[in-house]
Nucleic acid binder design. Structure first.
Lengths: 226, 226, 226, 226
DNA sequence: AATGAATGAGAATTCATTCAT
DNA sequence: TATGAATGAATTCTCATTCAT
């Protein structure tokens, strides 16, 4: 469960060189997936020799891991502001959906890279990435659900961890729906071919769904106060 | 967008032979992913020669497509009963969650196979599979949401297609959480390491979340009837 | 400590094909040593594709092991007749030296191959070859020394195992001296540049040396019968 | 047949630096053999840059040759005292065997390095090393055999060069038997697995064998004086 | 229909050697 | 003198696909 997957030589490399290499790697891995990605091609794209590539990374896997780490870091900082804003939960949800719509369209790379994780054999690495990617959102979501519950803003009888999980599931699925070919198709099947042309509809309904899920349902109320 | 990806010879083959071949393929593709799966190995597992394999399928991709088709058909029939039962929506949700918990544990194959779709280049194929896999659930979910809305069982102001989408997103994510390494880790981060030991908790909270989402929230009510 | 280092496909191959492949391998390994030997070149020499080479052998090491096994078998049968003849010990020694002179000149391959063993990392393999190559000679030498000792033909106070070892050491070194570049030079330094032109001298002195070593020395006699 | 295989810069280098470099080289070549040894690794072990390495030596081969030269010089001085002591031949033999047992166990490096010579293509180099390594022992052995023969200590009818050769063959094989994996196995096959635990037995029998070989055999005597 | 031997292009990785600084 | 980044040809091994029988 190491954090560093590159050799010292990569640390010593020129920052612009590092960026070029990681960009080339991220691009190739996102485009072709882990297995089909070709190190020789990545080296060429980065404008360096294969040999140097192997001075920087011991194996193809290490290169991939480093690319993932980098991409995650980039994404995490982008998202964490939104996630950790002190807005009310539903305002955050709204902001998150809008962020997903905007950034996913701009940068499909991360989500594509994301699926490369599946190709990894090593359980350790999978756990490492899950931890790194999911922990931030989890902490944020769970924390504000706890607070909201204390403040009486959401139903008192819900398991905040499970509800945070459902909350994130909706957002993650939405994110995939703006990026992955398969999920885009699925989105169109469920919500119509024009769903990508009406972002407001998506925001509105998502917020409605989540708002409703988090508050006392009328049925529940009836049940409790007969 | 063809539906058939095998050669005529495969139609003429003995049914048990066909099953053996597809099972071998499904197993191999699920275990190693599309790229790493090895046709020669599949042929051996199926007990036929590579040569014959190529009498049945033009390419590795065709074999994969046929395997996917087969696996989808199997899964679809399994699921459609549950999906199309005439129970109330929340009862169905409960049943679906339980089915997911049970079948995912038993047969991880399909979900693993599923992620192989991502490795496909061909957009046509992706769209074809999305259609085939998602359409059934969509039709069912959407139909009963429409009916429920007409019957006043769920809030009248929701976009049934979008809500069906959210509903399925929760279920699909749950399904992955019982099968894929990455999603399993994510599940543990959100809901605790022992989440896999308390299926009832998951059922209870999922139903609570969905029930709440589908009905008028009290807050909403208060807001509307001050 | 397996005995077979090839895949079943090699067993099924045409005998002449097998011979061609092993000859090509033996030649290449003998010429360049284990590390420098090139599988692609061996395949080309054998007139088959690299792919087929790997249908026959899992790794370069396996190919080498199989080549060694084959070469040892060839050599062993050649030698074992001489070794197991029922001549008197010194006659055998003489015959052995003559055989070494003749066969080493004809076929330098084996001894050259032999040094490739040193390059092997795997202790198991080294032990396996040592056993296979040395056991035959050991059994033969030791057996006839035992018999000779019982018959009073050699000194009664010698450790027959150690003496068999010294006996074989002389013969082995001689063998190397007719084949390996280094040992040839050494031979010339010790015995003169013309040592290769007078085989009889070598036979004569070797027999003299061994004969003397195996029988009671005068000094010994004097010592014992003062 | 040059004697120097390094560039002038190496002469100008600091003596301790030279030693470090050669030690690193000797260690690496002994451990991995010529082909597998890695110049970059040697440079790192020696604490200098690859670039400087190539200021000292034109090629990997040159580095190896220089390392060999150095190792031979070290070994030669170590051995020559023993070899040139003025003890009786058998006492020397005994001392040599004991030296072999002691030094081989302590320093396997040289013998391992030794086998790297085999990997050399260049005949000139092989001859050069043979000359350098073997000449000293040869001169010593031959000289004292000549003297011994004049003094009537050994049989008058033996070819002293050939006998010196046999004498050295026994000692060399013993040396290998304490160091090389293969020869160690061979030693165990011939003399028993516990041969390494009873050094005295080896000394005793070796001396017995050689003593006997060098003196008139009784059989011979009987034959000559019937 | 059925076999499975055979192909060969392709991909990851290594390392002796060069060269700008 | 000294560095160590950079090169790229070479090598082992894989596997989808073909084809003679």
């Amino acid at each position: 469960m190491e954090t560093v997957h590159h050799k010292p030589a990569f640390d010593r490399a020129d920052p612009s060189r590092k960026k070029t290499v990681l960009d080339a790697g991220i691009g190739e891995f996102a485009e072709h997936g882990y297995e089909k990605a070709n190190i020789n091609v990545i080296a060429k794209k980065a404008g360096i020799s294969v040999g140097l590539m192997y001075k920087y990374f011991d194996t193809k896997e290490d290169l991939f891991l480093t690319c993932m780490d980098c991409a995650i870091d980039t994404m995490t900082t982008e998202i964490s502001e939104v996630v950790n804003s002190d807005a009310k939960i539903l305002n955050r949800a709204e902001q998150l959906v809008r962020t997903v719509q905007r950034t996913s369209r701009e940068d499909t790379t991360f989500v594509k890279l994301y699926s490369g994780i599946t190709e990894l054999k090593n359980d350790q690495h999978v756990a490492y990435f899950a931890e790194k990617i999911e922990r931030v959102s989890y902490e944020a979501y769970h924390a504000f659900l706890e607070r909201a519950q204390r403040d009486g803003d959401i139903r008192p009888d819900c398991d905040t961890r499970m509800f945070a999980f459902f909350f994130d599931s909706i957002l993650t699925t939405l994110q995939f729906s703006y990026v992955s070919d398969y999920y885009r198709e699925r989105f169109k099947i469920y919500c119509g071919d024009d769903v990508f042309e009406d972002d407001e509809r998506v925001v509105r309904e998502a917020v409605k769904f989540l708002e409703s899920a988090f508050t006392f349902s009328q049925a529940e109320v009836k049940h409790k106060n007969p």
